[in-house]
Nucleic acid binder design. Structure first.
Length: 477
RNA sequence: CGGGGUGUAGCGCAGUUGGCUAGCGCGCAGCGUUUGGGACGCUGAGGCCGGAGGUUCGAAUCCUCUCACCCCGACCA
């Protein structure tokens, strides 16, 4: 399996799929559009889960689990929602050898079934807010699939909250977008634009959708997380009402927000290089790989004894892997673990043992430049410091790349060139016609209308009418 | 759904003017020598050539039909 991957510079998408399979993150499943997430990929996902779950808990959310099957009639209750999701539903028509009275939908998302329950649970203003998240799988029958980025079945978390007022729901939607952005930038080392979706890109059934958008290594955009203010759309469809302090019956206002295994794809595409993966230390299954080197049994004993004192030092503070396989040479292992994206490699041979030091090799900086030696004494501190540096460097590098490839074109010709090869930040008049025409002519869509605006006015990049906001346009995954 | 492509050993492929025993590289197993940037030798295991029909003395190879997967578009986290 550990053959070289197609160079990223040569064929970006081949590189992407090669890396996933050769690094053993995932493999194609026997069912079209589905993938098997292998232990190494799943460990990465578990770290993503932990990073997010910790933040959800810290903002007052609790986890729960709702069923996989949703009665077909539920999906129909919210008009825009049914229209948005119908084409991609998997439907169960038989169970236990008999045709079902009512077909069951395999959840594509859980707004409907959760609202059916919330409608039961909510009676009084005292029952609010409900702040529930669930970790689960969902199924969307997409025509075109790509490992991690879009699979028929995928793993995600979906938060579903219910609030007394529109203001609280809005506040919640924005809070969770901040949580996502914080996770993306600090844990995944992926810089994101936070902003609002255009109406055309809005979630089916939402009042407003917010998103974090990231630039991949091929300069295309990827929506890395979304947060929706659902208003009272689902509450009206499901009759989710409560009595307020004045004994008046009111609909709840809701949000939903999600991050999926797509985040794994984002990490691969943002940080990887020709050698393969580069994983951010905060999420890497192994932060450090230790490669012991020896020539004979006597050296082996000494080297491994030293390795043991090091791993003893690491304890729980560092996630490490000792690669003491005898069937591979050190050089082979170096290449293997670089391909698998381990942020830091520690080499220990007889020379190091004699000198009381180890060799450190950074994954983010190749060749000699990334190598240094460190004393065995207090190594854990040095390693942690270096992991922090790598984390910071990955973010800085990704940010610079995004900035270098985000342009502010002054006319439509420049705009077309810009979205050909990066992001364009341009005034947009807000009309769906301009948006649709741009999409048709350039294949670029509005990724978001960033919160970060300069407050100035300008002319729409397409029609020239007055515009008050700039949008990020790009080709997207 | 439209367009393109691929199915032969675990992986990557060759073989396809029909021809006898289906081959190569990597990987895998055993033994030995190796090990600081993808080591080497020897021995060996592993195939109803995607499936079904047909043509033929003879089919991986020709014909028909099917199935699966990948890539490019439209749809989407």
């Amino acid at each position: 399996m550990t053959q070289k991957v197609t160079p990223r510079s040569k064929d970006y998408f081949r590189w992407y799929t090669d890396v996933i399979q050769k690094a053993e993150l995932a493999d194609y499943a026997p069912v079209k559009g589905c993938m098997v997430i292998r232990p190494y990929g799943y460990a990465l996902w578990e770290n993503i889960q932990q990073g997010l779950d910790r933040r959800f808990k810290a903002t007052g959310h609790v986890n729960a689990y709702f069923p996989l099957f949703i009665p077909e009639s539920f999906i129909r209750k919210e008009a825009e929602h049914v229209e948005g999701f119908s084409p991609e539903l998997a439907v169960v028509t038989h169970g236990g050898g008999k045709k079902l009275e009512e077909p069951l939908i395999v959840r594509p998302t859980s707004e409907t079934i959760i609202n059916a329950m919330y409608a039961k649970w909510v009676r009084s203003w005292r029952d609010l807010p409900i702040l529930i998240n669930q970790w689960c799988n969902v199924v969307r029958w997409e025509m075109r699939t790509r490992l991690f980025l879009r699979t028929t079945e995928f793993l995600w978390q979906e938060g579903h909250t219910a609030h007394a007022t529109p203001e609280e729901a809005e506040e919640e939607a924005l809070r969770m977008l901040d949580v996502y952005a914080d996770f993306a930038e600090n844990d995944a080392a992926i810089p994101v634009f936070k902003g609002r979706k255009s109406d055309a890109e809005r979630f089916a059934g939402a009042v407003r959708s917010y998103t974090i958008e990231a630039m991949m290594g091929d300069k295309r955009a990827l929506q890395a997380g979304t947060s929706h203010n659902l208003g009272d759309n689902f509450a009206r469809a499901f009759g989710t009402q409560y009595l307020d302090r004045n004994n008046e019956l009111r609909y709840v206002h809701q949000t939903s927000w999600g991050v999926s295994t797509r985040m794994v794809g984002a990490i691969i595409m943002v940080h990887g290089d020709d050698q393969g993966l580069i994983l951010p230390p905060k999420l890497a299954p192994y932060q450090v790989v230790i490669v012991p080197i020896w020539h004979d049994e006597e050296e082996k004993a000494r080297v491994l004894a030293t390795v043991e004192t090091i791993t003893g030092q690491f304890g729980e503070a560092v996630r490490y892997k000792v690669d003491d396989r005898e069937e591979y040479s050190p050089g082979w292992k170096f290449n293997e673990w670089e391909m698998r994206g381990v942020p830091l490699r520690l080499e220990i041979g007889p020379r190091d043992v004699a000198e009381g030091q180890v060799v450190l090799a950074r994954r983010d900086i190749g060749g000699r430049e990334g190598k240094s030696s460190a004393s065995m004494e207090g190594l854990v501190g040095i390693v942690q410091e270096m992991l922090d540096k790598i984390q910071a460097n990955l973010f800085a590098r990704a940010l610079k790349f995004r900035e270098d490839n985000t342009r502010e074109p002054t006319d439509y010709e420049e705009f077309k060139a810009a979205v050909e090869n990066g992001f364009a930040r341009s005034y947009w008049c807000g009309s769906a016609e301009c948006e649709a025409t741009i999409k048709e002519e350039t294949r670029a869509t509005i990724r978001c209308i960033p919160f970060d605006q300069d407050g100035k006015k300008g002319k729409c990049i397409y029609c020239g009418r007055e515009a008050t906001e700039k949008a990020i346009f790009a080709r997207a995954y």
